[in-house]
C-alpha cells in the first residue's frame, strides 16, 4: 500500500494529488481542479480544467461568467473519472445544492475529501453518503463540543412565532446568498409559510439557479421600495453584512435575525447585535462530525480547517489516528462557508 500522503497532500494552493496532477478546491489558479461545491472559498475562477457536479459548474458560471475555466467536465454523483490512473468519484455531501465529497482511489487506497458537509436533512440537496476509506479528510468549522445544533424546525418555528408576536416589525434574516438563503426559504415553505419572502438583490441569481434545478422557492419579491410600511410583518432575507448596515434602514423597525451555526454561542450573537439568533448551519455540528468519524471508521482522519484542537482530542480519546492540515484560504469564520 502506498502512503496516503503520496496520493493527496497539502500544498500552498490547496490539497494536491501528485499521481493525478490535480487539486481539490484550490485557493489559487491551477491546471486541473476538482471542485466540491460552489462557495467562493472553494470554487474560484481561473483554473485550466474543472471537474464538478452540474450544479456546482452552473453556480461558478453564474458567479464568474461562462469563461470561469479553460475547460469543464460535468460529473454525476457516483460517476467515476480517471486522471492518470487515479479514480475520482463525487458523492453527495449534503452541504448545499451540488455539493460533493471527492473520493480519490489509487493503488487500492481510498481517500475521501469531504469538502464542507452536514448530516441532517436539507430540502435543497441530497443527503451525505458515508464512504468507507483509508483517510477521511474533514472540515472542523464547528469542531468544539459547544456546537450542537437544534432541529431546524425548532428554529424556523421560533422565527415564525416572532413574526406573529411582532407584526409591526420587519424580520430581517441574515443568510449567506448561496445555500443558506434557499434552505431557509424551503424550510419556511415546509412550515406552511405561503407569504412572499422578500429578497436582497444579491440573492436573485442564486434563487433563479436553484429554481432551475428544481428547488421550488414559492413567491419571492424584491426587497426594494420607498414605502416603509410595506415590509411591516414581512420576512426579508439578506446577506449578513447588509443586516446591520445602511441597507437595513429602509425597513419598518427591523428585527435583525441571523441564521448561522455561530449563533449557538451567545457572545457571538450579541457581538453582531442580533435580536433573533437562528441556529441553522450548513456545516456538521460537533455530534455530526464525531458520529461521522465513528461511522466511517477511517484509518486516519485529516482535519483541513476550523477548530481542530477539540476534534484532535476526540480522535485521541477514540483511538483514531488524526492530523491537522491547517489549510489556509478557507473561511472558518465570517463570510460564506
Amino acid at each position: 500500500m502506498p502512503k496516503p500522503e503520496s496520493i493527496v497532500c497539502p500544498s500552498p494552493a490547496g490539497l494536491y494529488c501528485p499521481p493525478g496532477d490535480f487539486y481539490i478546491d484550490p485557493v489559487r489558479p491551477v491546471g486541473r481542479a476538482v471542485i466540491t461545491h460552489g462557495h467562493s472559498d472553494h470554487a474560484r475562477a481561473g483554473h485550466g480544467a474543472v471537474a464538478a457536479t452540474a450544479e456546482t459548474l452552473a453556480i461558478m458560471a453564474a458567479r464568474y461568467g461562462e469563461e470561469f475555466a479553460g475547460a469543464t467536465e460535468t460529473l454525476r454523483y457516483g460517476q467515476t473519472i480517471e486522471r492518470d490512473g487515479v479514480e475520482v468519484t463525487l458523492v453527495p455531501a449534503g452541504h448545499i445544492l451540488g455539493s460533493a465529497q471527492a473520493v480519490v482511489r489509487h493503488k487500492g487506497m481510498t481517500i475521501v475529501v469531504s469538502g464542507d458537509y452536514k448530516r441532517r436533512r436539507d430540502p435543497t440537496c441530497p443527503a451525505f453518503e458515508p464512504v468507507a476509506c483509508d483517510v477521511f479528510v474533514t472540515e472542523a468549522t464547528f469542531g468544539i463540543p459547544v456546537f450542537c445544533f437544534p432541529p431546524d424546525t425548532d428554529e424556523i418555528a421560533r422565527l415564525l412565532k416572532s413574526v406573529a408576536q411582532f407584526p409591526e416589525r420587519t424580520h430581517l434574516v441574515g443568510a449567506y446568498a448561496l445555500g443558506k438563503a434557499q434552505r431557509i426559504v424551503r424550510l419556511l415553505r415546509e412550515a406552511g409559510y405561503e407569504q412572499p419572502i422578500y429578497m436582497h438583490g444579491a440573492m436573485d441569481s442564486m434563487n433563479a439557479l436553484y429554481e432551475r434545478f428544481g428547488i421550488e422557492l414559492g413567491p419571492l419579491a424584491a426587497a426594494t421600495t420607498d414605502k416603509k410600511k410595506d415590509f411591516a410583518g414581512a420576512i426579508v432575507i439578506a446577506p449578513p453584512s447588509s443586516i446591520d448596515d445602511r441597507w437595513s434602514r429602509r425597513f419598518a423597525d427591523p428585527l435583525p435575525a441571523f441564521a448561522s451555526g455561530w449563533m449557538r454561542v451567545r457572545a457571538r450573537a450579541r457581538q453582531r447585535q442580533v435580536e433573533l439568533p437562528l441556529v441553522i448551519s450548513d456545516h456538521a455540528d460537533w455530534n455530526e462530525l464525531t458520529t461521522t468519524l465513528s461511522e466511517i471508521k477511517p484509518g486516519e482522519a485529516w482535519i483541513t480547517h476550523g477548530n481542530e484542537d477539540a476534534l484532535l482530542r476526540w480522535c485521541t480519546l477514540n483511538d483514531l489516528k488524526a492530523r491537522a492540515l491547517s489549510l489556509v484560504g478557507y473561511d472558518a469564520d465570517e463570510g460564506e462557508s
Binding site: 468544539i144 463540543p145 459547544v146 454561542v265 457572545a267 477548530n307 484542537d309 477539540a310 482530542r313 476526540w314 480519546l317
Partner: peptide
C-alpha cells in the same frame, strides 16, 4: 474537551 469549550464560550 471541557476546558477547550469553556475557554471558547
Amino acid at each position: 474537551l471541557f476546558a477547550l469549550s469553556y475557554d471558547y464560550v
